[in-house]
């Protein structure tokens, strides 16, 4: 039952499209604080979000080194990552 979506309480399923407003802040914070502790820290993502285009764009913006996704989403993520870099 799509009650929350229909009532516009949630704009999208946060398990499919990374919630940039809330969870995204923690990802940003974790990345920047992590790099305070270790400037060359390698940062990536390995949730299902790693193959979802808008989430990939977000990962680019917060300065991640890589995204990781299921094999069949790899081309999608590659394209989304390039688009994010151009934007």
């Amino acid at each position: 039952m799509p009650i929350y979506i229909n009532k516009n309480i949630l704009k999208a399923d946060p398990f499919q499209i990374l919630d940039q407003e809330g969870v995204g802040q923690l990802v940003e914070l974790g990345t920047s604080r992590g790099r305070q502790g270790r400037p060359d820290l390698k940062v990536g993502i390995c949730g299902e979000h790693g193959g979802e285009p808008s989430s990939v764009e977000f990962c680019h913006r917060v300065g991640m080194n890589y995204v990781s996704c299921s094999p069949y989403r790899v081309p999608i993520a590659r394209l989304a990552a390039a688009m994010a870099a151009i934007r």
Binding site: H60, V74, A81
Partner: peptide
């Protein structure tokens, strides 16, 4: 072409 412009790498869950 995508790889030409991308900064972030793409890995896989396997």
């Amino acid at each position: 072409l995508a790889d030409k412009y991308t900064r972030m790498q793409v890995r896989t869950n396997a």
